[in-house]
Amino acid sequence: MNVDIIFKIAAIGILVTVLNMVLVSSDRKEQAMMVTLVGLVVVLMMVISMVSNLFNAVKTMFQLY
């Protein structure tokens, strides 16, 4: 029950939001969009690895092949 994962994801989310605001205020909208996408991809990679762990656990547990 490692709580740090969701704190990490929340930190990335807040960081992306702040960076977005900074970039938008210095009228670089396209870079703000890029930062949002990068943040989303990083978080997606973490979550997808967790989901694959869950699915492997369920496969071995319930003999679902």
Binding site: M1, N2, I5, I6, I9, A10, I12, G13, V16, T17, N20, T36, G39, L40, V43, L44, M46, V47, M50, V51, N53, L54
Partner: peptide, 16 residues
């Protein structure tokens, strides 16, 4: 601000 990352947080919590 970031509804997509919020959804991913709830997904990660559910998975763990």
């Amino acid at each position: 601000e970031r509804p997509e990352i919020a959804m991913l947080i709830s997904l990660a919590a559910g998975v763990s």
